[in-house]
Design a protein around this nucleic acid. Structure first.
Length: 408
RNA sequence: GGAGGGUUGGCUGAGCGGUUUAAAGCGCUGGUUUCGAAAACCAGUUUCCCGGAAACGGGAUCGGGGGUUCAAAUCCUCCACCCUCCGCCA
């Protein structure tokens, strides 16, 4: 959500921002509603003031005022309701650093890092290797749960735990607090994160219990401090969340149907930061740096993408993706993503900090980034570390966690 | 799943229809005092919205929504959460 005062004072800027994001919201209508709302509010408050002053001295007059207020209140309510609905639909305008573009074809590759491995034998796809080693089983998963599920077994399961350990250990050095959050959220919390307005189709909802399943722990960590006020000295507040993530993949029929690249359920370690507004650019770079560091520790080749305006989600004002090189598919595929959501989520969730100078509560900025999306990391490791004999080497940095150096 | 009891400001805790201002204590901030500090004393201290350059003025806010009333923290109602006991359970 945007600040109505900001919209009032900078209508052209807002219009330009949401146009860059390919969104169509009637800002003039919002301004009109805002003015109407304040008019009603002023009237009602004046009347109420008068009523309060009367007290029990003139009960007849007080009763008259009460009736008048009762007539005006629905007008105010309806105006405000329409205003709030429209306000919540406005996406977060992009920062200046974000390239303008209509969709993902106009994202910018910032750089390529790491050395692509060379193979002196015919390379295989991760599913060929995984099935032969019996560490990924999507057939039986389909039998018991349907398409887009998988059993991660044996060496692959051990790799998962190793990756989680590596991520937690690395992030702890930068003061990320490890957290295992709830994976079911109340509707108002999910809405606060800004993913329901346009992404409801993507999210699982438990009708009977009125709970959403999280698509990422970003959602349950972001809402953790809702309604709270941080002390400025406690910022940035960083978390490293581990959770299972659930996605309906409703709009992805026929896309990546094979294997475990795009599944309904996977585990992920996610970074989340509540930070001071002036420090958000720095913080975003830190999250990106941590993502790159983790990829470098695993010695995996990757490239960094600056996501263009048309490909940003509603809450994000800037976003970088990391795509890992997958030799088995001869292409880069997304494994990480980090977003600066500025005060968009904080305003919806009412998360503030107390400014040390003014002593007034101000909204924090929220940022998130992937540490490891386990499934996709397994894919990247299997394909990059495959050997001629069909086995997989365990990346050096993970060996102390797995206790073995090779799968198969 | 069943039966009871709760939810008040940063914290403890009173108030259970009406002195427009939510008691008191603790904490916190500022001041007086002091060579400095502690103590003491004085003042301030929820959050949000509207108007205003500001000072300030107005409104809302006692878990949340709705209702009764001229007037609600207080009465009614629905919901959420917490606690205790019973049942089930990793």
């Amino acid at each position: 959500m945007l600040d109505i005062k900001f919209i009032r004072q900078n209508p052209e800027k807002v219009k330009e921002g949401i146009a860059r994001k390919q969104a169509k919201i009637d800002i003039d209508r919002i301004l009109e509603l805002d003015e109407k709302k304040r008019e009603y509010l002023q009237k009602i408050e004046n009347m109420r003031s008068e009523q309060n002053k009367l007290g029990k001295d003139d009960i007849v007059k007080a009763k008259e005022i009460k009736e008048e207020i009762k007539k005006l209140e629905p007008e105010l309510e309806n105006t405000d309701k329409e205003l709030q609905t429209l306000l919540r639909k406005i996406p977060n305008p992009p920062l200046n650093t974000v390239p303008t573009g209509k969709d993902d074809t106009e994202n910018i590759v910032l750089r390529e890092e790491g050395k692509k491995p060379e193979f002196n034998f015919p390379i295989k796809d991760y599913m060929d290797i995984g099935e032969k080693l019996d560490i990924i089983d999507t057939q039986r998963a389909a039998k018991v749960s349907g398409t887009r599920f998988g059993y991660i077994k044996g060496g692959a399961a051990m790799l998962e735990f190793a990756l989680v350990n590596l991520a937690m250990e690395t992030l702890a050095k930068e003061n990320f607090v490890p957290v295992v959050p709830p994976i079911m959220l109340k509707p108002e919390m999910m809405e606060g994160m800004g993913y329901v307005e346009r992404g409801a189709e993507e999210i699982y909802y438990l009708e009977k219990d009125k709970l959403y399943l999280v698509g990422t722990s970003e959602q349950s960590i972001g809402v953790m401090h809702s309604g709270e006020i941080f002390e400025e000295k406690d910022l940035p507040k960083r978390y490293a969340g581990f959770s299972t993530c659930f996605r309906r993949e409703a709009g992805a029929y026929g896309k990546d149907t094979k294997g475990i690249l795009r599944v309904h359920q996977f585990d992920k370690v996610e970074m989340f930061s509540f930070c001071h507004p002036e420090k958000s650019m720095e913080e975003h770079q830190l999250l990106l740096k941590m993502e790159e560091k983790l990829m470098q520790l695993l010695e995996l080749p990757y490239r960094v993408i600056n996501i263009c305006t048309g490909d940003l989600g509603d809450p994000a004002a800037a976003k970088y993706d990391i795509e890992a090189w997958l030799p088995g598919q001869n292409q880069y595929r997304e494994t990480h993503s980090t977003s600066n959501c500025t005060d968009y989520q904080a305003r919806r969730l009412n998360i503030k900090y107390r400014d040390s100078k003014t002593k007034k509560p101000e909204f924090v900025y929220t940022l998130n980034g992937t540490a490891f999306a386990i499934g996709r990391m397994l894919i990247a490791i299997i394909e990059n570390y495959q050997q001629k004999d069909g086995s997989i080497l365990v990346p050096k940095v993970l060996q102390k966690y797995t206790g073995f150096k090779k799968i198969g």
